[in-house]
Design a protein around this nucleic acid. Sequence first.
DNA 1: CCCGTTAACGCAAAGATTTCGCGTGAGGCG
DNA 2: CGCCTCACGCGAAATCTTTGCGTTAACGGG
Lengths: 197, 197
Amino acid sequence: MHYARDVSPEGPRPGGRSARVQAAVHQAVRGLQAERPRGEITVPRVAARAGVTPSTVYRRWGDLTELLADVAAERLRPDRPPVDAGGLRADLLAYVGGYLEEVSSPTGRAVLRDVVAASSAPELPAGRCDAYVRAQLGIIVERARGRGERVPPVARIVETVMAPITYSVLFASAPLAAADVRRLVDTALAPTVTAAG
Amino acid sequence: MHYARDVSPEGPRPGGRSARVQAAVHQAVRGLQAERPRGEITVPRVAARAGVTPSTVYRRWGDLTELLADVAAERLRPDRPPVDAGGLRADLLAYVGGYLEEVSSPTGRAVLRDVVAASSAPELPAGRCDAYVRAQLGIIVERARGRGERVPPVARIVETVMAPITYSVLFASAPLAAADVRRLVDTALAPTVTAAG
DNA sequence: CCCGTTAACGCAAAGATTTCGCGTGAGGCG
DNA sequence: CGCCTCACGCGAAATCTTTGCGTTAACGGG
C-alpha cells in the first residue's frame, strides 16, 4: 500500500495549468525570500518572477499575506514520517528537536509568523500546521503503542511540548534551548500527578 | 510621590501633539475594527477617521501591519494589577481565566494574530505582550511568596499554562475550555516530577 | 514672557499597488 | 473531435504608498 502522492489535491484540476502556476508562484516566493529582505517582497515582484500576471496571484490568494502563509504552511508540511529511533522517548526527542531547529532560526520564526498572520485564508494555514504536527505525533505514539509502551495522548504532547516551543518562538526574546526541550519531553512522558492544594 | 501618568512614554514628547495623534489613530483603529470586516481597514481610512493625513501614519508606524500590532499590544496591556483572590491557586485561576476569556473570542484571536504578524515593529509588540504576562504573573507569585506559600517560577507558569492557551488560540480549531485551564493551573502548581525511562 | 531649536505633521505630486471587466486558451468530458 | 468550464492574461481605473518641502506645535534658554 502506498502513501498518497499528494496529500492536498488543492485545486479541482490537479496536474493541469493551475498546478503549474501554483508551483511557479510558490517557488518564486521562496526564491525572493532567500535573497530579499522582507518588505521588498511584493505581489508584482513574485508574479514577474513566476512568469504570471499579478491579477492571477490576487485572484487565487487574495493578498500577499495569504500567499506567504500558504507558502509557509507548505514549508512546515512534513515530507516523510518521523524517524524511528527505537523508542517513544527517542522518537519524540528526534522529532521535537527537529521541529525546534526548524522554527527557532530567524527564517523559521518568520515562517511561523507568516502562518499565523493570515486571517481568513483558505483552509486556515495555522490549522493545517497544527494538523501536520498532530499527525506526526500520532504516528510516533501509535508506533510506541505497537511496541507495548505506555503512551500519553497526542494532545498532552502538543500541550506540554509543542505549545511552549511555539510560544517561545513567537513571543519570547530567545527561543528555548535544546535542554529545555528535553525536559519538556520528559514532563510529557511522566505520569500525571493529581495535586490538591 | 506619584506614579508616572503614562507607563510607556513612547515618543520623546509625551503629552504633546504626538500623544494626541497617537491616541486619535489608535481610537480610529479600534472604531473601524468594531464596525468593519478586516480587509476593509486601510491606512487612508484610519487616517481620515483620526483626522490626520495618511503620511503621518506611514511615517510613525511604517505600515498597517505594525499599526494594528501596536493597537493590539495596547489592548493586551493590563490596566491594573491582578486581583487578589486570597491564595496563589485562586489568584492564578482568576488571572488565567480572564486571559483565556480575552483571547479566545474571535476578536481576541484577531488581536493575538495582529501582535504576532508584525515583523520588525518598534519594540516588537509580541515581546511587549510576553512582558505584560510575566509582569502580572510576577506580582501574583510575589504576593504568594509573601504569604509563605511555596511558589513555582514564573517561567514554569508561562510554559505550562500560558503557552498552551496561546497555542490553542492561534493554531487549534477551537480554543481550550475553562476546565482544561484549571487542569493546567494545577499542573503548574504540582511538584516537579523527575521521571526516568 | 519671548525667541530659537527640533521633531512631527500637513500637503501634494509621483510612483507602486490592487481591483475589475472582458476576452482567450487550456484541460476535462462526452 | 467538439463543447464546456474554469483559470489566466491583458489593460484601464481606483486605491494605496512614498517622498520632498513648507509649516506648526512643543520644549528650553535667555
